[in-house]
Each structure stands twice: as structure tokens, then as C-alpha cells.
Nucleic acid binder design. Structure first.
Lengths: 161, 161
DNA sequence: CTGAATGTTTACAGATCTCTGAAATGTCTA
DNA sequence: TAGACATTTCAGAGATCTGTAAACATTCAG
């Protein structure tokens, strides 16, 4: 099957992009493997084999992906192995997690102003920074929330577009 | 002066955050040095001394920051040395640059659908991904544009908030 | 309770990336 | 054109990070 190879290639390529964005490499590969798999869910052994990585790496990857809401453990019916799958809304969760950085930037700006004072060149620069990140936070958070509502409304998935 | 030390500490802390977000460490330090300096602009030598890094590192940092629109070379009045300063709108430019990743994600989703087909579990997952990043692109780009207009309107800076 | 199968943790090896130091390049003055 | 000063480039040392292998813990069948 040639299609399978194309899928593998696409998965690896996307993993590379995610890695570029700060995600650990093996973690990104696990993520894209779960995205591109034809199965409903994959076991740790499946991932290990599919990606040719150690079980330790799989374990670490899951440990990183699960708390971010990107991947979830699925109750295995009749199997002792844990099954994992990409979570519904994974991408918006990923985005939210990146937004956490905006809060940090906002706080940093405020702290800077506290230390430097609101006047002078430094104060002015910090003020622009604070304004920007405040604006972004106020706009982005509701934006993502709106997406979530909108998407869970058309739960079927196929008709969501 | 104790204030100076507080500023240095704040700058370093922010640099660490930026580095966490993928920016090179020395590059991030140069960025925050330019943000926190009391001067209007800094020379490469200033940066080298302030941060205790080599001139090569400074050069590399500028080379990375300038194309992103975060830092600009300022015409030096009567000095042969180049002067640098944080650009107006640096933060929104940084954000825009991160948004470029959204486009990549969007394209990746489309390519995936091409390879996997729109039906089946894989197609459905990719579809959600595509929908999300399409939505984000459509919303985020105008959002930032709006900020830019809004901010350049109150050009003074001090009264911009 | 025992044994087997699976999942997790950790020290270490390998790879990767970053920064330094020095040479090369460029730019301006006289 | 020569000379001085500033910046850029680049090979290699150093630090950092990632993944593996193996020990350890846990869960479940019999």
C-alpha cells in the first residue's frame, strides 16, 4: 500500500513542525502517530513499533501529552494494555497552553514597570508590551472558547465545517 | 543603585521565558537588554559588555532579531558604531511570526486529508485540525492588524493605553 | 501467593545545539 | 591607498538535551 507510506511521511513531517514549535521530538511523533493512525486508538506497544522508539520514550511522551489535554487514555475493552487516542479538541487545547505564555509576558511587563517606573524610555517600552499582551489575552481566550462551543455543538464532526 | 539590579534581574527572567518559547538564549538576552535599557539605543559593544557575551553572539542575535522586525538598526549620529533599538510594534511582530506556524499547520492538515481521504477516523481527525487552524488564522490575523492600527493611532506612546 | 506481562523511572551515551575566540571582511578617515 | 576600527563569519569547545537500556513497580491470571 502506497497510501500508508504517504501517511507516514505526512505524519513525520508534521511531527517535525511540532518539534520546531518546542515540543519534544519523540512526543511530537507520538502525537502525529495518533493523529494519522487508521485505528480508533493505539497501545503503547503499537506506538513503540510504529515509531521504532523505546517503550520509555512512549511513556514519557504520553506523560507529557496527557496533562495538556492532547491525548487521553481510553478504557481498553478486554485488553490489559492501555489504549491511547487523540483527544477531541486537542488542537484548541494546544493553543490554550501556548496562550499561557501570554499571561507570563503580561506579568513580566507589569513587574518590569514596577521596577523601572512608568516614565522614561524603559517604562514606555514596557507599557507597549503590557498593552499588547493584555489585548491579546482579552481577545484570544474568548476566541478559543467560542471555537469550543461552536465545535462541540456540531458534535458529529463531519458537519462541523 | 539597587534599581539597576532589579532591572537586570527582570530582564534576565524575561529572557528565560522567551528562550523557553523557542528563541535562542543569547538572542533573547539581547532582546530584553534592549527592552530594559535606559538608553534610547545600544551599540553592539554595549550589548557585549552588558551581557558578558562575545561580539559574535551579538552579531548573530541581531541577525536573527532584525528580520523578524523585533529590533532595528538606528542611524548613528556622529558615531561609527551601529546602534540598535527595540522596534515599535516588536511584540505584535513576534506574535505574527508565531502565527506563521498556524499556516503551516493548516497546510499540513489539508495535505493529510489529501493523502488519507476525508472519510474514516483519520480523515475526521484531520478535518477537525483543519477547521481549527483555519478558524484561528481567519480570526488572529485581523486581530493583530486591528491592534496595529489602534496603536499607531496613539503614536505618542505615553498616551497609547 | 506466584509468575508473567505491561508500564514507569533513571543513569548514561549519543547527538544536537550554542557560544566563544580568532581570522576575515567591510567601512570610514586622512 | 593605507590604516584603524567595527562587524561578520566559522571551526571547534562546551553545555544541553534526548532517547535508550535496564532496573524497578504494578497489575492481573491462575
Amino acid at each position: 500500500m502506497d497510501t500508508n507510506q504517504r501517511l507516514r511521511a505526512a505524519a513525520e513531517k508534521l511531527a517535525l513542525t511540532l518539534a520546531q514549535g518546542g515540543m519534544q521530538r519523540a512526543t511530537a511523533r507520538v502525537m502525529t502517530a495518533l493523529l494519522y493512525t487508521g485505528k480508533e486508538s493505539m497501545t503503547a506497544a503499537d506506538l513503540r513499533e510504529e515509531l521504532s522508539i523505546s517503550s520509555g520514550a512512549v511513556s514519557t511522551a504520553i506523560k507529557q501529552l496527557a496533562p495538556l489535554g492532547l491525548v487521553e487514555r481510553v478504557p481498553a475493552p478486554g485488553s490489559r494494555r492501555d489504549h491511547y487516542r487523540l483527544r477531541q479538541g486537542a488542537w484548541s487545547n494546544l493553543m490554550s497552553q501556548q496562550n499561557a505564555l501570554l499571561t507570563v509576558m503580561c506579568d513580566a511587563a507589569r513587574e518590569g514597570i514596577d521596577a523601572a517606573g512608568a516614565d522614561g524610555v524603559t517604562g514606555r517600552r514596557l507599557h507597549e508590551m503590557q498593552d499588547f499582551y493584555t489585548y491579546m489575552l482579552e481577545e484570544l481566550v474568548p476566541l478559543i472558547d467560542r471555537w469550543r462551543e461552536q465545535y462541540t455543538a456540531g458534535t458529529g464532526g463531519a458537519s462541523a465545517g
